[in-house]
Design a binder for these strands. Structure first.
Lengths: 355, 355
DNA sequence: AGCATTTCCGAAAGCGCTTTCGGAATCAAG
DNA sequence: CTTGATTCCGAAAGCGCTTTCGGAAATGCT
């Protein structure tokens, strides 16, 4: 590999001052069209491109944003991270910016990590996932007046940018759907409610229950961790109680996988004896036993969207103008069905809705 | 946020020269223990830490490495990416280095992207995944004498660093296992063989077949894409042919999920009528129908390992000394079983091995 | 032709650090 | 009390760019 071309070499080669060449390359208006053309052509001919580190130091623009990895309690790799990063990378690469991935080290807490990140000047903005209802990171970034965007929302979400899916509404839809299928005892496998999304989904479940004239029974609610094991435990408790639910709503697909297992372990057939509905729309849900009915969020391009919005904010846009709420749709596969009774069973085999 | 502390301010505050303070902070031996202590304490008291961009420019060390995202043909998000990044991040953060995630933009090819990345000076090393048998990226990095490590191997792997799992051996083990269960017609759902891992797994399958005195029949081999749909198509072709296999080996778990679906779609019971074995050890395989028997690779800390090795190479270590071959283990769940025959069925219900 | 503009480029001062080099102060030895 | 060797720190030159500023050259005007 030949010695890297520098501005200095390029400028002496062209017989121009460094500053002139720099301005020509950056399309300053005070450079004649002729020399600008000459400079730019020679630059690409010699394969010159400015050293990003030097440029960043000189301009004070980091040309990079950081994605804060969600804390991974249970070493469950988040299935959405890869997709989100791809989208983010797409968005940033159009501008030639870098995507950093960071996580807090065990020794220090996350706000401290973010504080260091922000003050270090390594990045121009950050995106965070899975905010808590009262998220210290968000407050920190707000008070620092640092550009950021949230994948999700906290309780007070008026003053910053976010991209979220209305999971409260989604869970309402799911309850309506189950009620329409005849269910009146609907269980809920929740996640720790310091997560905003966990609270929202619980609210959607509860509120829609009452809206349908059904009681909201706390015995039908289990809060457990965001893993298949968590879901299995939670659903297990529900099923083992007196007067168990005939349907179970789970906060995430991964939990729902565990719920399916819990039902099968007790000799039941999910979708027949007990309905299960998850949330996320993971493709992998097509392969569970039975295929999982789920609330599918349109996360195909959420990363792209987050990136574009963050860039707009870094460019000076008002964060308040970048708040996007998408909605999830019920994707019926085979884990939901009409409420099961002996009568129905004798009359006819309960039909399984098709995917 | 108060104005960021700079070396200059800190040094005038201390009544020392900038250079002196810098050397004190960096533990140069020519600074007296007394002043060094004074400087370091005052630095942390005032919350000073060097601007990374300036340091990187001055030292010429990028203090960052890049992870090249595998090309995502089919928009299938790779389940292992998240875990790998976590491990990589762990390793790098100990040194305070950054982790960049990059991918090639549609407009340019991957080697070109890597060339730019390397010459830009933004990173001190790169890690790449899923190498081809004859990988242009590897050649490029080798000829540039740039520090890198490969997650996997190419055909010629003597001269660079890699971390890989012996999937040839793993597939041999799987064939032995199936033969021991009585199978003699074993199908193979492969991936494009420009991927080294795809070729290795195919080789392991073929060679072990002959080693067991069985013919290697090309009609039992289907090459298809790395997705559940690909696996379903491939397995479907196998099953629809004359004299179909009684067991199917799949290159990845995701493909195996599709194979399970193909069997079920034809009225068969995977693990009973037709055995299926995947590769990856994805946790999600516990929830398929039936739970997938798989070759589990110990990828829990592969990211960490890759990071540590790359750092050692950047520090001047000889890449040849950093080659690590791990092995995968057969994780029996319920998609494999003895070869199915009418006789066996009449004699007794085929038993399903437990997870 | 003469003056006021405008156009275009060179020079220089940073950006915030690191690192080499040399000299002043300190020390031990004669 | 010298001398030579050490110890410790200051000064300055970068790293490779950007950007402001001022002036020379070219242009417009009357």
């Amino acid at each position: 590999m030949t010695a890297r071309m520098s501005l200095k070499k390029l400028s002496t080669h062209l017989g121009l001052a460094e500053g002139t060449v720099s301005r020509a390359l950056n399309n300053y208006p005070d450079i004649s069209a002729k020399t600008r053309k000459r400079v730019q052509e020679e630059a690409i001919r010699l394969g010159y491109s400015a050293n990003p580190l030097a440029r960043r130091l000189a301009t004070g623009i980091a040309e990079a944003v950081a994605y804060i990895m969600p804390e991974s309690h249970s070493s469950i790799s988040e299935p959405f991270v890869s997709q989100l990063l791809t989208g983010l990378g797409d968005s940033l690469s159009q501008r030639g910016w870098d995507l950093l991935v960071t996580q807090s080290v065990p020794a220090e807490d996350e706000p401290e990590m973010i504080r260091k990140l922000v003050t270090s000047g390594r990045v121009s903005g950050v995106v965070i996932s899975r905010p808590h209802k009262n998220d210290a990171r968000i407050k920190l970034l707000q008070s620092a007046k640092f550009p950021f965007i949230v994948h999700g929302r906290s309780l007070q979400s008026e003053d910053y940018a976010w991209y979220d899916v209305d999971s409260e509404k989604a869970f309402g839809d799911a309850v309506d759907h189950l009620v329409a299928l005849g269910h009146s005892r609907i269980g809920f496998v929740g996640a720790p409610t310091y997560y905003t999304f966990a609270q929202a989904r619980l609210d959607g479940y509860r509120n829609t229950l009452v809206a349908n004239g059904l009681p909201s029974d706390d015995n039908l609610i289990q809060i457990c961790e965001l893993s298949d094991d968590g879901g299995e435990r939670g659903a297990g408790h529900l099923l083992d109680a007196d007067n168990p639910p005939t349907a179970i709503l789970c906060t995430t697909d991964v939990q729902a996988f565990g719920a399916l297992a819990a039902i099968r372990a007790r000799g039941g057939v999910p979708g027949k004896h007990v309905s299960v509905i998850g949330y996320d729309g993971l493709r992998i849900g097509r392969h569970t036993n039975p295929p999982l009915t789920t609330l599918a969020q349109p996360q195909a391009h959420s990363g792209r969207q987050l990136g574009d919005m963050l860039l707009a904010i870094i460019d000076g846009g008002d964060p308040k103008n970048f708040q996007e709420l998408r909605s999830a749709e019920l994707l019926r596969r085979q884990s939901d069905g009409p409420v099961w009774t002996e009568r129905v069973q004798q009359a006819a085999q309960p039909h399984l809705p098709q995917c």
